[in-house]
């Protein structure tokens, strides 16, 4: 969870300092309701990027790395949409 949030906070600060990078793709992404729940479940599942836990259970890193990256992006989008009114 911590890396996910840290990643998001850094990007949010970046977007606050450089507003010209806002918009575009971000405006196209709009998640609500049940999708938020799915995101949070994913975040919980991959909390703190405990890769070795999943490796030891036989999961492939080819699956885990992109999934973790996706979770980072989704958490960022979620936070961005939440705090956008105050940016």
């Amino acid at each position: 969870m911590v890396p996910n949030v840290a990643f998001s906070v850094i990007l949010l600060v970046f977007l606050h300092v450089y507003p010209e990078f806002r918009g575009g793709l971000m405006e196209l992404l709009w998640f609500k309701g049940a999708f938020f729940v799915i995101i949070l479940v994913c975040v919980h599942f991959l909390s703190a990027h405990q890769y070795y836990f999943y490796y030891n259970l036989g999961c492939s890193r080819r699956l885990l790395f992109p999934l973790a990256f996706l979770v980072d992006v989704l958490v960022f989008v979620l936070l961005y949409q939440t705090v956008k009114p105050w940016l």
Partner: peptide
């Protein structure tokens, strides 16, 4: 770890969520 499920690694750091 992918081709032989009978091998496990305890890494230096804690690995349990």
């Amino acid at each position: 770890y992918r081709h032989y499920p009978g091998i496990k690694l305890l890494p230096q750091h804690s690995f349990l969520p």
